[in-house]
Amino acid sequence: MNGPAINLSPITAPAKLAWKGVRKRFGATSVLADLDLSVAAGRSLVIIGGSGQGKSVTLKVALGLMEPDAGQIALDGQNVSGLSASARRKLFSRFGVLFQGAALFDSVTVWENVAFRLLNADGVGRKAARARAIDALERVRLDAKVADLFPGELSGGMQKRVGLARAVVATPEILFFDEPTTGLDPITAAAINALIVEQVRRLGCTAVSITHDLASARTIGDEIALLHEGRIVWRGAPADLDATSDPRVRQFVDGRPDGPLTAQL
């Protein structure tokens, strides 16, 4: 059965980051099947999709935490798949990542978490690194008093803020957000979304997010792409989510269990 035509908005600006024919399998299971996707410089792309459709793998492949079986990841037009470990570390200096559970290091304090890259990769002195970390914490509305606490002493929302501060402290070119509002109450989630928008605009950077939270997607995305069975099956502006008649988008937005998107139970 032929599905509706895929709405892949034409990209006029050159792509900052692109997935080109990316394939990834785990054993017999195909997770990404010729994924073609790109995001222009300065734009915020949100990838939505159900559980098990390949969102996390899409992000990990772009970050280089996972190598694709086939295809390329292009950054500013250059293929960055299969880089050596040292080249990959240099590339990471252009990225900032907010992980799903914040992924803060338990054994070091909040400010040392925020300044981790500065201290351990960039060779910034402790005094200067601490000052920059506290500045970043204040930008995400966290008081300097939390700087000397350990991550285990913070609430989930505060941990997400610290994770965001860590992602932006070194002024990255591309920010990645992995399910930024998962596990948060609606008010805290809205606050995190607002902070993400604020930081992306302040830095003028490109952003790629994955989420299944539509409220979050509408707030932080300039464009939204629906990933299903390892491919992008729809792409458009946040306003188009409600306007489109695409049955896959309609099913996802309405949260109906029956429809063209098979629920992964």
């Binding site: 935490l65 470990a85 570390r89 992980f99 990769a121």
Partner: peptide
């Protein structure tokens, strides 16, 4: 536990080699 909570992935994205650290 660091692997399960993505702390090792996070360390890599912060340009720090987990083997060294």
């Amino acid at each position: 536990a660091m692997r399960a909570t993505e702390q090792i992935d996070a360390m890599q994205t912060l340009s720090t080699d987990p083997f060294r650290y």
